[in-house]
C-alpha cells in the first residue's frame, strides 16, 4: 500500500510524506519546503524508519528520528522529528 499525507508544522514549514507499507514500513520519502543540514542526511532519517511496525505511535517514531538527528549532528529548521512522525501516522491511518 502507498499513502501520502501533508502536515503544516505549526510555526514551521510544510512536510509531506509518501509511505509504502504492508504490516511494516517498506519505504518512506519525506518532502517539503523545510531545511535539513546537512541536506544528505534526510536519507538517514528516511532509512531509519524502514521495517517499522505501522502501528507504532507518533512518539516512538519521533524518538527514532530524534536519535538519528542527535547521532549525526543534524540540524532541522522549519521541521521537527515530531512533525515528520505526525505526517507518517497521518499517512498510515488514512
Amino acid at each position: 500500500m502507498q499513502k501520502t499525507a501533508k502536515y503544516k508544522i505549526p510555526g514551521g514549514k510544510l512536510v509531506e510524506v509518501k509511505v509504502e507499507y504492508q504490516a511494516e514500513i517498506e519505504n518512506v520519502e519525506i518532502f517539503g519546503d523545510f531545511f535539513i543540514h546537512p541536506e544528505e542526511s534526510i536519507q538517514r532519517i528516511e532509512e531509519s524508519l524502514l521495517g517499522l511496525d505501522v502501528k507504532e505511535d507518533e512518539e516512538t517514531i519521533a524518538n527514532i528520528i530524534e536519535k538519528v538527528v542527535a547521532k549525526n549532528n543534524i540540524e532541522m529548521i522549519g521541521v521537527t522529528p515530531e512533525g515528520i512522525a505526525h505526517a507518517i501516522v497521518m499517512a498510515v491511518v488514512k
Binding site: 509531506e16 519525506i30 518532502f31 517539503g32 519546503d33 523545510f34 541536506e39 534526510i42
Partner: peptide, 8 residues
Amino acid sequence: GRFQSMEG
C-alpha cells in the same frame, strides 16, 4: 527546494 518533489 532540495527536499521538494519536481512533479509535485
